[in-house]
Amino acid sequence: MNRKRPLGVALIGSFYIFGSVVLWLSLFLIDFSSEKYGIAARFGLPNVPEHLARILVGVVSLVMAYGYLRLKRWGYWLMVSYSIYFLTVSGYLFVLYKDQPFLGNVIWSLIVIAYSYSKRSHFYTKPQQIWVGDKSV
């Protein structure tokens, strides 16, 4: 493919990969009882066990970041859908609790949605074919 990945797409995808790795490492390094709001609560799933929520969010983030970094159409839509869901849940929780982690999540989700939308054409271009004589490669 002859498409160039925008810098913002590389940064956003890398942040999600980094976050996924940190979530998995936190399973072994952090005592969850000291956290005011765990990952499950931040995603609007307070009845889901914290370990399971960290594993699931980590897997979804990794798959989503892979598709996003590879400029796949499904990666774009998964990132936008994930960000809209996270924006909605974080906005609701911010109105409910007025705490910073939720406001930061709202701002991040807005940035990801706006930037992804502005670069949507990179996810919809078809790979160029190379013509050698009468055959395409």
Score class of each variant (00 low, 15 high):
residue 22 V to D: 05
residue 23 L to F: 05
residue 23 L to P: 01
residue 25 L to F: 08
residue 27 L to F: 02
residue 28 F to Y: 12
residue 28 F to D: 02
residue 29 L to W: 07
residue 29 L to K: 08
residue 30 I to G: 02
residue 30 I to W: 06
residue 32 F to Y: 15
residue 33 S to F: 04
residue 34 S to D: 02
residue 35 E to K: 12
residue 35 E to R: 11
residue 36 K to I: 14
residue 38 G to T: 15
residue 38 G to A: 10
residue 38 G to Y: 10
residue 38 G to F: 09
residue 38 G to K: 12
residue 39 I to H: 00
residue 39 I to E: 07
residue 39 I to L: 13
residue 40 A to M: 07
residue 40 A to D: 11
residue 41 A to M: 09
residue 41 A to W: 04
residue 41 A to H: 11
residue 42 R to M: 15
residue 43 F to G: 13
residue 43 F to T: 08
residue 44 G to A: 03
residue 44 G to F: 04
residue 44 G to V: 03
residue 46 P to L: 06
residue 46 P to N: 11
residue 48 V to K: 08
residue 49 P to Y: 12
residue 49 P to G: 09
residue 50 E to A: 08
residue 51 H to Y: 14
residue 51 H to C: 08
residue 53 A to L: 14
residue 53 A to Q: 13
residue 53 A to T: 15
residue 53 A to Y: 11
residue 54 R to D: 13
residue 55 I to T: 10
residue 56 L to V: 15
residue 57 V to T: 11
residue 58 G to Y: 09
residue 58 G to N: 12
residue 58 G to E: 06
residue 60 V to G: 01
residue 61 S to P: 00
residue 61 S to A: 07
residue 63 V to K: 00
residue 63 V to C: 10
residue 64 M to H: 03
residue 65 A to D: 06
residue 66 Y to Q: 12
residue 66 Y to A: 14
residue 67 G to A: 11
residue 68 Y to R: 01
residue 69 L to I: 11
residue 70 R to C: 13
residue 70 R to V: 10
residue 71 L to R: 10
residue 71 L to V: 07
residue 72 K to W: 04
residue 72 K to P: 00
residue 72 K to I: 00
residue 75 G to P: 05
residue 77 W to F: 15
residue 77 W to T: 09
residue 79 M to C: 07
residue 80 V to F: 09
residue 80 V to G: 01
residue 80 V to E: 03
residue 81 S to I: 00
residue 81 S to K: 04
residue 81 S to F: 05
residue 82 Y to S: 02
residue 82 Y to D: 02
residue 88 T to A: 13
residue 88 T to S: 14
residue 88 T to Y: 05
residue 88 T to R: 04
residue 90 S to Q: 04
residue 90 S to N: 11
residue 92 Y to F: 14
residue 92 Y to M: 12
residue 93 L to P: 01
residue 94 F to P: 07
residue 95 V to R: 11
residue 95 V to K: 08
residue 96 L to E: 15
residue 98 K to R: 14
residue 98 K to L: 08
residue 98 K to F: 08
residue 100 Q to P: 02
